[in-house]
Simulated scan of single mutants.
Amino acid sequence: MKLSAPIYQLKRKAKLLARNEKLPLHEALDRIAREEGFARWSLLSSRSVPDTPERAVLSRLSGGDLLLLGARPGHGKTMLGLRILLDAALEGRRAVFFTLEWTECETRSRIRSLGDHADALGDKLEIVTSEEISADVIVEHLSGSPPGTVAVVDYLQILDQQRSKPSLAAQMERLRQSARANGIILCFISQVDRAVDLKPGSVPGMGDIRLPNPIETGIFSKACFLHQGTVRFHDLA
């Protein structure tokens, strides 16, 4: 039976229900299970497909976090960014995709390819496409957003490609301050140096990020790296 949301989101919903209605957690879990068509939570958890690492990234992020999503081309970093936004929309959060690379039509097509709830939720994702995207544009667009809003920036290395824009370091510092002040989650898709020699089963790391214009990688609070289907999450704080 297909669930209306990943298990980790259903668990979070049950915890909120338990807190708001002063219920024991097991009763709240069973109530959520019944809404999903199962007699009790244990049946739901045993018959459903376990969450993949990709589906659990949002649950590990908090307001004010700056997440780095790093991988070589073709290893799924942008699709993971869109997955995070879909999961945020599923929870009723504001979700925004800023892209200097894709058109809105291309982005919508890739969102639909994710399946699951993409058809129902895809239109709730805001897509901002412009070569003018910068920290100023992002901060202004997200002004007044509720805490927990999630935005993905595609991608880090071209934020300062135009000489008229501030340096990448200055933009990232402004974005960090804004995220912390407003409880917003910002995710930055990032390229990995093509010269990095990765062994089978390994993934890139912070030292492998391609940064033609230097920034302090310590500005990020979380990082997620992908390579050949392997996903590795790091808490950097």
Rank of each mutant, 00 (worst) to 15 (best):
S190V: 08
T99R: 05
K13A: 02
V139A: 15
L10G: 02
S143F: 14
L69C: 03
D30R: 04
A33E: 07
Q9P: 09
E36Q: 14
V196K: 09
L44D: 01
G218P: 01
L198H: 07
P53Q: 00
K199F: 11
S134I: 05
R180L: 13
G122L: 11
I32E: 06
G81K: 01
K124I: 03
G81L: 04
L100P: 00
R55K: 14
M1W: 09
R93V: 02
M172W: 07
V139Y: 03
A33S: 06
R19E: 12
M206G: 07
R83C: 07
I158L: 13
I138S: 08
I111H: 10
F188N: 01
I158S: 05
E106H: 08
A120M: 14
S42A: 14
N213V: 12
E132S: 12
A169H: 13
S46L: 12
A71Y: 02
I32H: 03
P214V: 10
R210D: 09
D160K: 09
I84V: 15
Y155H: 15
G207Q: 10
V150N: 06
S4L: 05
Q162F: 11
D136G: 10
G70V: 02
G144W: 09
Q157I: 01
K77V: 05
E173I: 15
D136V: 12
V150T: 01
R47L: 12
R83M: 13
T217Q: 14
I209Q: 00
R163Y: 08
Q177K: 14
S45Y: 06
Q228W: 08
I158W: 02
E126H: 13
R19H: 03
G115V: 09
D123L: 11
L226F: 09
V49A: 05
T103V: 06
R94L: 13
L17I: 00
N20S: 11
A118N: 13
A18H: 02
T230W: 09
V49Q: 11
R163A: 14
H234M: 14
G64S: 09
G81Y: 04
A95S: 15
T107K: 05
A39D: 12
D30P: 00
E216M: 11
T107H: 00
L58R: 00
P212L: 05
E126M: 11
L236F: 08
T129L: 06
W102L: 15
R12F: 04
F188A: 05
E36F: 01
I133T: 06
E132R: 13
F98Y: 11
F225G: 03
G148S: 09
R12N: 11
Q157E: 13
L85G: 03
T52V: 08
R110S: 10
K77P: 08
L68V: 02
P53V: 01
A95K: 07
Q157F: 08
C105E: 15
I138R: 04
T230C: 07
R19P: 04
F97H: 07
F220H: 03
L168I: 06
H26C: 04
I209A: 03
I7D: 00
P214C: 01
D123E: 15
M172K: 04
R55S: 15
P166N: 08
P214T: 11
L168F: 07
K13P: 03
R112P: 07
C105Q: 15
I184M: 13
L17F: 02
N182E: 14
L43G: 07
L85T: 08
Q191F: 03
I219W: 06
L61W: 03
A5T: 06
